[in-house]
Computed example of a mutant assay.
Amino acid sequence: MSKAQQFRTKGLARIIHYALAIAPFEFCLIPDRDGFVSTKELLQALHEDADTAYVRESHLREICWGEERESFELEGSRMRARQRRWEFSDAPMPAVPKILYTAVRKRAHAFTIEKGLFSHGDRFLVLCGDRETALRMGRRRDSDPVIIEVMAEAGRRKNTAFFEFGSLVLSREIPPEFIAGPPVPMDRMEMAKAAATEVKRPEQRGPQSQKQAGSFLLDLERDPDTARRIKGRKQKGWKEDARRFRRDKGT
């Protein structure tokens, strides 16, 4: 590796160390409880700056396996700093801004207005103090996200908990009465209603589909015995002929 490459790698390592160990919230990154962030999210954050737009996953591996390996840990598709200076607060904020912002995908717009916002698993909802930051985060998931306003102070008074994480605010759930956003276009509203009410119709089953496992249906039209394929009254056999002969003889 040339000196220029070494210098570039060390510079990138310092940026990533700051993002993972000191102030992940400045990069709009929310690590898990163990300090890991997904490499996908880390790369998305780095690509928002022209100076680090070149970074690929191979550069992250190079840092974790090179001279800086004592500072970072790469585990599958996630990465963390071994020593971290930030921490999550478990104490709800005693005061919050009147309005906070977040972004949702277009396809989640109607659901969010009607049902509210929910976190998934151990992840938090991430709220921002300004529209620009919310839009920045939203564009990582949708090219044209919808900005949602959260009446945070009103929600806090009704026992909705908010937690401080640097310049960001975290929450687990935001009820719909504390959410405001642009009107949902009619086509999206109709699609959301259709998806919620659609009931799968039972499939029409014909005779061939009514077979059960291990069974079969007789097809009389394919019977090799032509006598069994004749429709209508059953043909007379030798017993019927004998009875008729005895009746005729007796008369």
Rank of each mutant, 00 (worst) to 15 (best):
Q208V: 07
R205Y: 03
A195M: 10
Q204W: 05
L217W: 04
Q210C: 15
P176L: 02
V184N: 02
R201K: 08
I179W: 01
A213Q: 09
R205I: 12
K211I: 11
G155T: 01
L220W: 07
P207L: 15
E198H: 15
T226S: 13
T133D: 10
E173I: 03
D223V: 12
D130G: 11
A161G: 02
E164C: 13
L217R: 09
K211N: 09
Q208H: 11
G214L: 10
M137V: 12
E153G: 02
D142M: 03
N159E: 15
R136C: 12
S143R: 14
E203G: 03
V184S: 03
S209W: 05
P183D: 15
G214M: 06
L217Q: 13
S209M: 13
G129M: 04
G155L: 07
G206Y: 09
R172K: 13
R188C: 04
D225Q: 07
Q210F: 06
K211E: 12
M137A: 15
D130I: 03
R136P: 00
Q204H: 10
Q208F: 04
G138I: 11
K193N: 08
F178C: 07
G206P: 00
L135C: 07
R140V: 01
A195H: 05
S209Q: 15
L218E: 12
A195W: 01
L135G: 06
T197N: 09
E153W: 06
K158T: 08
A196C: 03
T197V: 02
G166C: 07
R172N: 06
T160G: 01
P183N: 14
A154V: 01
E153A: 14
P202C: 14
P207F: 06
L218N: 06
R201T: 08
V150R: 00
